[in-house]
Each structure stands twice: as structure tokens, then as C-alpha cells.
């Protein structure tokens, strides 16, 4: 292993493990709960960072899978009581749903713009469908779906196959943080495999990928389904964070937020969307407590500023600046020498 690779894996691993173990010791419970939410949102951001930033699939409705994961967990947890199987279902259901949707979109060779339109429409349909199930006849097993009232008092996670031993808030934090690390390093590993490289190549030039004999449709379908599974896991953790889920999880605002996190952090990076999700979720919480400015207006403003001034996002901008400072100090010297030379024009 080269030094560069040790650093590029080692640094995030050390920071991640330190946060995983350290924060529950350092922070009081209220703050730790907030941080748990940010971590969950970071996982959600990673799901889109992978699908959009590397797969080139602009999914405008990533919240559909987040919400499906959340509802799948909540409804099965009410029915089963023990959380091991509901967790699996919360990941599997969005994955299969995305696989079916992806099959129609990618095998139907629908153009990129329509993929965006369809995914957005799907999440809005889910929002309306779930929203209108408030009457008590809408139930799945023992779980009332609850419509716009949402599902309160969702049973929380327990240690696997031990229903009486439920996770405490600091345990939930550690599960969320561990999931974030697994997802982050998992995606990095995938991107090094042939599958990941072909995926990036599809983003660059889908036609050429097919000319060299790879089935682009299948690769996109797999990436889309995988991203949905990650979003579903985030949804499952989200329900556990608040033991509550409502249809707003499918809303346009939720979907837009994910896109803004990824954009602000940097499309085509993984650290960027994590930081974007954490920073903007924190900002949303702060703004919410102060009642000075509407959070949506603030978000819209941030989006406009980034699109105009930092279109590639924070992380690509910063790394490029740092990179050019570190790698090309000589150029500056050369320029300075030229300027200092007699006859050189400043």
C-alpha cells in the first residue's frame, strides 16, 4: 500500500472511530441526540452522493427510499415487536422498490431528465398516498398507518434477537455512526472495484461503455438499488432517533434538502456530502429555534449562492486550492522571478 492510500483511508478511519467512541463520553444527551440526527442525514446524503455523484443518475426523489425504509421499519416493528427483521426489511424494501423502478427507467432507456422527473413524482405520489391514510381502516397488521398524523411511539431498536433489551440513545448514536462509517468505506471500496469503475465510466460516457461491451443498464440499476438500500437504512435509523415518522419524510422539501447537501458539499465526493448534510442540518436546527428567518428561504438562498459562486461544491474547491498550493509552489516562484526580472511587465 502506498503512503497516499494509507493516509486517505487511515485519516477518516481514525477520525470516524474517535467520534464513534469519544462523542458519547464528551457530549450531554441532548447534544448527542442532535448529533445522531446529523449522522443519519449524512448517511442519507451518502446514498445520493453515490447514485448521483458517481453513477450520474440524478435522482430527485431520494427521499422516497428514505421514507420507505422508515415506514417499513415502523410498520414491521409494530407487528413483530423484535427489531432484527424490521431492520432487514427497512433496507430490502426500498432496494427492491428501486430495482423495479430502475428496471422500468433504465431498461426503457428513458433520458436523464425524465429519470429526475419520474423519481420526484414517485416520492410525491408516496407522500400523497401515505398522507391520505389517516382513517383507522388503513392498517397493516396491528400498525395504524396514521396518514398525516404519522406513526408515533415506534418500538425502538433492540439488541439482535433480544427484544427486552432496547438500545439507549447513546447506543443508537453508536449504531448510526458505525453505519455511516460502513457506508462510507463500503462506497469507497465499491468505487475501486470494476463495477465501481464502470459506473463512473457510464457517468462519463454511457455509449462508449456499451461499445466496449458492458451493460450500462444493469450497472445503473444496481447502483440505483444500492443507493436506495442505503437511504432505507438511514430511514430506519431516523425512525429510531425520534420514534416517530410522518409523511413529510416523502415531501419535496426533504428531497430537495438531500440534493442541496450533496451540491453544497461537492458532487463527485463522499466527504463533501457528509459535511454538507451535517452543517446544513445543524443550521436548520439553529434557525428553527431562533424564529428569525424561515429555514426554507435560507436553504433556497444557500442553493442560489452555491450554484452561482461555488458550482462544484465546497470540498472540490478546497482540495483544488490546497492541492495547487502544495503541488505547485514552483510556479509562483517562477512568476515572481519573471516579475522581478528587468524588463518584466507586472
Amino acid at each position: 500500500m502506498s503512503v497516499g492510500r494509507v493516509v486517505s483511508y487511515g485519516v477518516p478511519a481514525v477520525i470516524g472511530l474517535a467520534l464513534l467512541i469519544g462523542l458519547p463520553q464528551l457530549l450531554d444527551l441532548f447534544v448527542l441526540l442532535q448529533v445522531t440526527l446529523y449522522v443519519v442525514m449524512a448517511i442519507l446524503a451518502l446514498s445520493l452522493a453515490f447514485v448521483w455523484g458517481y453513477g450520474g443518475i440524478l435522482c430527485l426523489g431520494q427521499s422516497a427510499f428514505f421514507g420507505l425504509g422508515a415506514y417499513a421499519y415502523a410498520i414491521t416493528a409494530f407487528n413483530i415487536g423484535e427489531s432484527s427483521l424490521p431492520v432487514v426489511i427497512a433496507i430490502l424494501l426500498p432496494t427492491l422498490f428501486a430495482a423495479a423502478l430502475g428496471y422500468l427507467m433504465f431498461y426503457g432507456r428513458i433520458s436523464e431528465v425524465y429519470v429526475g422527473v419520474i423519481t420526484l413524482t414517485v416520492t410525491l405520489i408516496l407522500f400523497n398516498a401515505v398522507n391520505s391514510t389517516a382513517s383507522p381502516e388503513y392498517r397493516i397488521g396491528s400498525a395504524l398507518i396514521g396518514g398525516y398524523n404519522g406513526l408515533p411511539n415506534v418500538p425502538s431498536l433492540n439488541f439482535p434477537f433480544d427484544p427486552d433489551n432496547t438500545l439507549q440513545p447513546d447506543d443508537v448514536y453508536m449504531v448510526a455512526m458505525a453505519t455511516l462509517l460502513i457506508v462510507y468505506f463500503g462506497i469507497r471500496w465499491i468505487l475501486r472495484t470494476r463495477f465501481g469503475r464502470v459506473l463512473v465510466a457510464i457517468r462519463e460516457n454511457e455509449r462508449r461503455v456499451e461499445f466496449i461491451g458492458f451493460d450500462a443498464r444493469l450497472h445503473k440499476l444496481a447502483a440505483f438499488a444500492l443507493g436506495a438500500g442505503i437511504a432505507g437504512a438511514a430511514g430506519c435509523l431516523f425512525v429510531n432517533w425520534g420514534s416517530y415518522v410522518s409523511p413529510t419524510i416523502f415531501s419535496m422539501i426533504q428531497s430537495a434538502q438531500i440534493i442541496i447537501w450533496v451540491m453544497v458539499g461537492g458532487v463527485g465526493t463522499l466527504i463533501g456530502p457528509i459535511l454538507g448534510a451535517v452543517a446544513l442540518s445543524w443550521l436548520t436546527a439553529e434557525v428553527g429555534t431562533q424564529h428569525v428567518i424561515n429555514a426554507d428561504i435560507l436553504f433556497g438562498g444557500i442553493l442560489i449562492v452555491f450554484v452561482l459562486l461555488v458550482p462544484r461544491g465546497l470540498v472540490p474547491m478546497l482540495t483544488e486550492h490546497v492541492w495547487s498550493r502544495v503541488m505547485q509552489p514552483r510556479r509562483k516562484v517562477a512568476v515572481a522571478a519573471k516579475l522581478a526580472a528587468p524588463g518584466g511587465r507586472a
Binding site: V200, E204, N205, R208, F211, F214
Partner: peptide
């Protein structure tokens, strides 16, 4: 499908170079 045709052994070089610009 284009990828099936490629796998049979038909290689294609397009007029405007079709490559992966970002790689």
C-alpha cells in the same frame, strides 16, 4: 443491444472521439 453486439467482437470507433473525458 449495443453491448451484446460489442461482445460478439464488433469494435466501434466513432467520428467524434467517444472516450471517458474525466478519466
Amino acid at each position: 443491444q449495443p453491448h451484446e453486439i460489442a461482445r460478439l467482437g464488433i469494435g466501434i470507433k466513432t467520428q467524434v472521439p467517444s472516450v471517458f473525458d474525466g478519466l
